[in-house]
Design a binder for these strands. Structure first.
Lengths: 335, 335
DNA sequence: ATTGTTTGTTTAATCGATTAAGCATATATT
DNA sequence: AATATATGCTTAATCGATTAAACAAACAAT
């Protein structure tokens, strides 16, 4: 690898100490009273040699890396892909780069990722916390490393977070179905103790109760890494065996997609036989034979806000901020 | 931020020099003949203080960062998202982390990204090169920084690359349509001088010529950042005004998706009125009213191979390797 | 007793940039 | 003329880990 140019090379060529070069290239020539001719000469030589500062050296000395550690569930998932993209762009604006990893919803993997990223001295973290990661997150926050949780949060921890108001999202979606006359409404959710999932379920239950339909509450729990067969089993139970559900609310994108695959091969038609509300927009929703009505989280806004919160912390803010954004409801033809 | 434990802290607590601590924690206690008791003590104290090496310091000293710079067009695009995911996992296996950026198909942005990543001393690059980035890539490769191009390559540059055999992909797809009796076949492509696009067009043309259909060759070029209106204009021209095209081959995923949106609102039906071959699998393809037949690139394999090639280079390999993988053809009901 | 070898440890340089502190000159002030 | 202040630059420590080289003590060989 062709040797990179260092401050020292410039200093030698100009015939001054590295201190002066550093001052000039960091725009401190006034403050540090560097002679005009020298300033000019240093600038020239730096340009001529195409000098690029070694950020590693700078980081070691300064104690920061201008790097954000970003951990999502799976970057191959378009929802998180978009989130990462927004965070990347926003972080760049503030001079930060992003080191990232996918947790696969596995708290052990999360722990390992946090370790590597810490060793690499990231300045702060933006994390989509998986189930059971409370301890890992707590440990991190006790080390006083800036963190922002996004998309989810754990109960009762005093950590910055950016979420939508999940309760209202499903509450409104349920009411939308109720208004349309559906009564036997089921919600399809993941097994999860994390805030968003319990809120999503909570919003649905509340809306059902308000209509006096507590007996019709059906909560179908499916594990995170489910197969299409798992989904088929659950939906068969809900739609055929059990109490002939008339409408389904899905609470994550991947559950929604699995649900669509089910109806693609089912006798039952959407919305004639069953109404369908999906979660988090997807092109597939648009191309389903009856385009799917869905709840979307404002990913762009969430990403931006999370960076903003993190930067605030990095700039010394000590107060905990929990941001709640509003979801959107895209009405198409599946209900 | 709670002060991190350094080698020095351990050294002081044990009462030895940092050299010994470093030897022991790097498993060189035999080679460097460190006393047994001392080894034990150092290990104990390191565990007790929960020591984590500062990778920044280590990198500065060693001259490597164990970091790969990864630049794709847009990480929010599921195709690249998956690619990034695979590369991330594969790199981790070899002890590398990934610093990434999205170029937005913009060669200037690519240049800026390369600069930042170089300043951060990444050990090597995996890049999806955008149009017009020849100079930037060349400059990088002249600095003898290991690079692997993925998904695309520029003509006549002696750089490692991982691509599918694009020529054969469209050649076979075209023959598939010809076998089914379609004659008026058009290809929808991006304006691009990059290898894959010209090969994709080339394979199509060759197959058409072999059937003596050179007069029926229709190449419709659409710019990378196109709107659905752009697509509609092009397809209207091909299907309504011009020579009543019977079949369409799309050459990228986003072109395919735009195409699907067109047919979603069109009088013309797939495949009765027009046959449709998409590019790079997508859930949307499965949910279109007549599930789309498509060409897929083996993203996982491509990602893995690219990491393998890069690691080889990082381990000192000097020979240029150009890998060509085979595409797959998923037959559904759109032709 | 002298020299050589092995064992176990420390010293100090190094990576590249930053920056407080110190040291000359030159100029201004009394 | 003596002192103060401003100007312009250098020295050297620092961040944390690695590692060649030097060193001391114990032991073995002659």
């Amino acid at each position: 690898m062709g040797k990179r140019i260092s401050l020292k090379d410039i200093a030698e060529k100009v015939g001054v100490s590295t201190a002066l070069v550093s001052y000039v290239l960091n725009g401190k020539e006034k403050e540090k009273r560097v002679g005009k001719d020298v300033v000019k000469k240093i600038r020239e030589v730096a340009a001529e040699l195409n000098y690029r500062p070694n950020q590693i050296a700078r980081s070691l000395r300064q104690g920061w890396t201008k790097t954000i550690g970003l951990i999502v569930a799976d970057i191959a998932n378009p929802f998180f892909g978009t989130m990462v993209r927004v965070i990347e762009d926003e972080a760049n604006k503030f001079g930060y780069n992003v080191l990232f990893g996918s947790s696969d919803e596995d708290s052990e993997k999360l722990g390992a990722l946090i370790d590597t990223l810490c060793n690499r001295q990231v300045d702060g973290f933006i994390i989509v916390p998986p189930e059971g990661s409370d301890a890992a997150i707590k440990r991190l926050s006790e080390r006083e490393i800036p963190i922002v949780l996004i998309d989810r949060k754990m109960k009762g921890q005093n950590i910055d977070s950016v979420l939508i108001d999940n309760y209202t999202a499903t509450y409104e979606a349920t009411n939308y179905l109720l208004d349309k006359g559906y009564k036997r409404i089921a919600i399809v959710a993941n097994k999860s103790s994390l805030n968003p999932m319990s809120e999503r379920i909570g919003g649905y239950c509340e809306a059902m109760k308000e209509e006096g339909l507590e007996k019709e509450i059906h909560i179908e729990l499916i594990k995170y890494e489910h197969t299409r067969a798992d989904m088929a089993e659950s939906l068969d139970k809900l739609l055929l065996k059990e109490s002939k559900i008339e409408a389904l609310i899905f609470t994550t994108n991947s559950l929604s997609i699995s649900g669509l695959y089910y109806f693609r091969n089912s006798e039952l038609k959407v919305p004639e036989d069953v109404a369908f509300i999906g979660f988090d927009g997807d092109e597939a929703f648009d191309f389903f034979y009856s385009p799917i009505t869905y709840i979307v989280q404002p990913v762009e806004e969430m990403g931006k806000e999370s960076v903003r919160l993190l930067i605030d912390q990095l700039n010394g803010s000590r107060k905990t901020v929990q941001i709640r954004l509003k979801h959107s409801f895209i009405e198409q033809q599946s209900c």
